[in-house]
Simulated scan of single mutants.
Amino acid sequence: MSQQVQPSAEQFLALTLESDTAATVELFEQAGNWQERYRQIMLLGKSLPKLDDNLRVESAQVRGCESNAWLYHSEIDGKHYFIADSDARIVKGLIALLLIACNGKTSSEITAFSPDSYFTQLGLQGQLSPSRTNGLLALAKAIKLAAE
């Protein structure tokens, strides 16, 4: 029987994205069109570290994503931290947007988080394909479930 690999607390705490929700919304509001927003998503995706291959396991995969996406969760001192990755660059950028909004937050803050409102604020509502939107909502749901 193989033991499931789990990232260390240091790995969760080491993931600090260089932005907060308000700064991210402002950045996307300044983007004049969809191409500029798409570029920002891709740049955010590059800021996420790649998961080690030993962490890309089926038990960590997010169901409902068309692309492969993996999510890990840890609660440290009453706050929730996530590490996630995808094999698709745009999905990785969308994951980064979710992590900016949810990493280091309490259960009640994550429960109150509305991915629909957030992505509307970012100007992404209606810009993503239905399958990407479904995958994004599946990721947000997995984050909320982990934080309960």
Rank of each mutant, 00 (worst) to 15 (best):
K79I: 09
L55Y: 15
E58H: 11
W70C: 00
Y38Q: 07
N54Q: 15
D53A: 12
F82S: 03
L55E: 09
D52M: 03
S86G: 13
C65D: 09
R37Y: 01
R63P: 02
L48C: 08
L71M: 08
L48F: 09
L55H: 10
C65W: 05
D52C: 04
E29W: 10
Y81S: 05
D52A: 15
G93D: 06
E29M: 13
Q40E: 08
Q40T: 13
L94F: 00
A84H: 13
V57D: 10
L43D: 14
G64P: 01
A60Q: 07
N33L: 03
Q40F: 14
F82R: 03
I41F: 05
N54Y: 03
I83K: 11
V91H: 01
L43T: 12
L44T: 03
K50N: 14
I76N: 02
S67M: 03
M42D: 03
S86C: 08
R56Q: 14
N33F: 13
S47L: 04
W70Q: 05
S59A: 15
Q40M: 13
G93F: 06
S86F: 09
A60N: 04
N33D: 15
R39H: 14
Q40A: 13
L51C: 04
Y72W: 08
Y81R: 04
D87Q: 05
V57G: 01
H73N: 06
G78E: 07
G45K: 01
A88C: 07
V62Q: 12
L94V: 03
G32Y: 09
M42G: 00
F28L: 12
R56Y: 02
H73I: 04
L51H: 06
A60G: 05
Q30G: 14
A88G: 09
E29A: 08
I90D: 09
S86D: 11
E36K: 12
A31Y: 06
C65Y: 05
G32E: 14
V91D: 02
